[in-house]
Amino acid sequence: MPAQPDYTRRYTVEEYFALEEASDIRHEYYHGEIFPLDGPDGPEAKAGGTKRHNRLVQNCVVALRLALRGKGCDIFSENVRLAINEADHYNYPDVVVTCSPADRQDPRIVRYPSVIVEVLSASTEAHDRGWKFQQYQALPSLQHYVLVSQRRRLIEWYSRSDSGTWILASVRELDEAVTLSALDISLPVADLYENVETGPEEGPVLLRLPD
Rank of each mutant, 00 (worst) to 15 (best):
Phe133Cys: 00
Gly130Gln: 08
Ala182Asp: 06
Leu147Met: 15
Trp166Arg: 07
Leu209Val: 13
Leu183Glu: 04
Arg172Trp: 10
Val110Leu: 02
Gly203Cys: 04
His144Asp: 14
Glu21Met: 06
Ser159Arg: 05
Ser23Phe: 02
Ser181Asn: 13
Leu64Ala: 06
Lys71Gln: 15
Ser141Ala: 15
His127Asn: 10
Ser149His: 15
Asp38Trp: 00
Cys99Pro: 03
His31Thr: 05
Glu197Thr: 15
Thr8Ser: 14
Pro5Phe: 09
Arg108Leu: 15
Val178Pro: 04
Val148Arg: 05
Lys51Gln: 08
Gln150Met: 11
Trp157Ile: 07
Val117Asp: 06
Arg172Asp: 14
Gly70Thr: 07
Glu176Gln: 14
Phe133Tyr: 02
Ala177Asp: 14
His27Pro: 07
Arg10Leu: 09
Glu15Asp: 12
Gly70Ala: 07
Glu86Ile: 07
Ala122Pro: 10
Asp38Glu: 15
Met1Ser: 11
Ala169Glu: 13
Val95Pro: 05
Ala87Phe: 08
Asp128Glu: 06
Glu78Phe: 05
Leu154Asp: 08
Asn91Met: 10
Arg152Val: 15
Leu19Ala: 01
Asp191Lys: 08
Pro107Gly: 04
Gln137Asn: 01
Gln58Tyr: 01
Gln135Asp: 03
Asn195Ile: 01
Arg172His: 14
Val97Ala: 03
Trp157Gly: 02
Phe133Pro: 00
Leu37Thr: 01
Ala177Thr: 15
Leu37Tyr: 04
Asn79His: 10
Ala67His: 08
Ala177Gly: 06
